[in-house]
Design a protein around this nucleic acid. Structure first.
Lengths: 343, 343
DNA sequence: CTGAAAGCGCTTACAG
DNA sequence: CTGAAAGCGCTTACAG
């Protein structure tokens, strides 16, 4: 690794001690201008770069932040990643991403074990998978590490938490539909392994009850881990004896497939059936070309940015030990897939 | 970092030497079943995990691979990232991503300096930026590191190179259009900082010459670093006195904006003007909803997968020192944006 | 302002 | 099969 040049070579070349080279390179203690120049000259001509493993070992600091997500390729992450990148650009920390495919808990553990043992100073974890129990147990044990959990409120785990009001957002979606005159409102759930799916389902259930709206047979559709299955669920719902006039989809990617299904059946969205999604996802999978999807927005870019900024700030001032807990509000973004009915 | 449990604690708890613990944990040398069990028990009950910085320092191996790209958020990367992820899943190496925003060479250098000094054993670098000179100079000096350069054939730099025949691909696009009866073919170039832009432009120029087709005034449009500027370039071309019947765009993202421009001007693609792109990009920016774009495909998923597989295999068997050089061929994928004319 | 020395947590010949 | 010891490349009190 590296080019083989160590601090020793620099010390020799410039005729000073290792300690002095270290001080010059790090700009810590006072060093006379003369020796500083001698050392810098040697650093330059030798092409010296400090070994990060050695630094980490002795200083217990890596100056790096790790971000762990599932399915980094998912266009869902577009805004979130931009947020991370923008945050990264503003910090001295090196920001590295790790991705696990699907809900492969084994690789998630592997990456977390890797990162938490001498590789990064802090970790940003996005998303809550119901299969995460062993991961959580492991993390709780690493108390020296700083965490930002996004969209994941692990009980009994005190760390920074940036949360989204998913239940409230789902409720606002139902209220919005009701105000548009809809009474027959169905729900297509998301990935069954994610906690967010349950939260949004609960929001649907709560608000339907509060609004006094009946949930007919077949009004709750469960997708697989694949957004695509939203297509089949929508198909089934559209063939229900008591066909819903509106469908709340757990996320925009599912909504995009649901709208394709309706369209393929000869139905017009929103004239024949209204659809509302969640996320306000900028980029949809699989070249969606339907109407712009009315949705419940969560501020993903902001959250990505905030998470990096928060973590690097906390790592810098060691005083700031108080963990942040913040819940981001959602808002309805009206586009083209919900129509008013009745009235 | 970590949980504070070191190899010393394990040695003490199980009544053996550090060396023995190391041997058990790494499964290297022979150790008797009895002591092996004692040690493993201590490892488990203490929750010991080896410190990667210490390991890296002494063994000169990190068991990690770094991937560096520009604009990780760009949906262009969808297939490539899936390829990286799939490759990562199949290797014991920890795969980490670093992203630099725009063509921020300063951060690129920062990340490369970080990775190459005790953090990873090998690096995959995607893309060729014309501003990369200092980066290249730096990398050439790190000969102990293994590299896979994708889409970047740095002269005098011997490393693994996975290349795409961009010039050939561009030529095939022009030939394809000519075979469809087009004689007035314009070209919208891509990001001026990328070498790929020049290669594809050269392909266009070559093939136009070979085909004996004239490049009229205004037939070559230059975009900024933003795909969006493809919109303006297309607008201008459509107002040319000698309006082209077909436009070859340097990539699909630009093509998507070009098609929007034509459509907004009341032109129909491909009836009034044909458009061909490059990349066969699965997911387009900014919710494109036009026709499916006929394009020159490059096998991004395969390249992503191959790069990780190649690097981890080379790091494993140290004998395989011969660098691989492979050029992936492109192929035309006919979709909905090119029509035949004349005849 | 500068240096000698200890030590971070591990691995790996070298002995036995 | 197991242990004592050296050393990876750095930083940081501690002296001076």
């Amino acid at each position: 690794m590296g080019n083989g040049i160590t601090i020793k070579d620099v010390a020799k070349a410039s005729g000073v001690s290792l300690a002095t080279v270290s001080r010059v390179v790090n700009g810590t203690d006072m060093v006379s201008e003369a020796t500083k120049e001698k050392v810098m000259e040697a650093v330059r001509s030798l092409g010296y770069n400090p070994n990060n493993a050695a630094r980490a070992l002795v200083s217990h600091k890596t100056n790096a932040i790790g971000i762990v997500v599932h399915n980094l390729h998912d266009p869902f992450f577009y805004d979130l990643i931009r947020g991370f990148e923008t945050g990264a650009q503003q910090t001295k920390y090196n920001v590295i991403f790790c991705s696990v495919l699907g809900s492969d808990i084994k690789s998630k553990e592997k990456y977390l074990k890797y990162l938490t043992n001498g590789v990064v100073d802090g970790i940003i974890l996005y998303g809550s998978y119901l299969t995460d129990e062993s991961v959580t147990r492991y993390l709780k044990d690493r108390d020296a590490m700083k965490y930002v959990m996004i969209e994941n409120d692990i009980p009994d785990f005190s760390c920074n938490k940036l949360l989204i009001d998913n239940t409230g957002g789902a409720q606002s979606a139902i209220r919005y539909l009701k105000n548009k005159g809809h009474h027959s409102i169905a729900h297509i759930c998301g990935n069954p392994n994610k906690k967010v799916t349950i939260d949004r389902l609960n929001g649907y259930l709560n608000e339907m009850r509060l609004a006094g709206l009946e949930i007919h047979d077949g009004y709750i559709g469960h997708t697989s881990t694949d957004y695509k299955s939203g297509y089949e669920r929508m198909r089934e719902m559209m063939e229900l004896p008591c066909r819903p006039s509106a469908v709340f989809c757990s996320d925009d990617a599912i909504a995009s497939y649901a709208i394709r299904a309706a369209t393929d059946m000869g139905l017009c969205v929103p004239k024949d059936v209204s659809v509302i999604g969640f996320d306000n996802q900028t980029i949809l999978p699989d070249c969606y070309r339907g109407p712009r999807i009315t949705t419940v927005e969560q501020p993903l870019h902001q959250i990505g940015y905030d998470s990096v900024a928060l973590l690097s700030q906390q790592l810098e001032d060691q005083k700031t030990v108080t963990n942040v807990r913040k819940t981001y509000e959602t808002r309805i973004v009206e586009k083209e897939t919900v129509a008013a009915v009745g009235k």
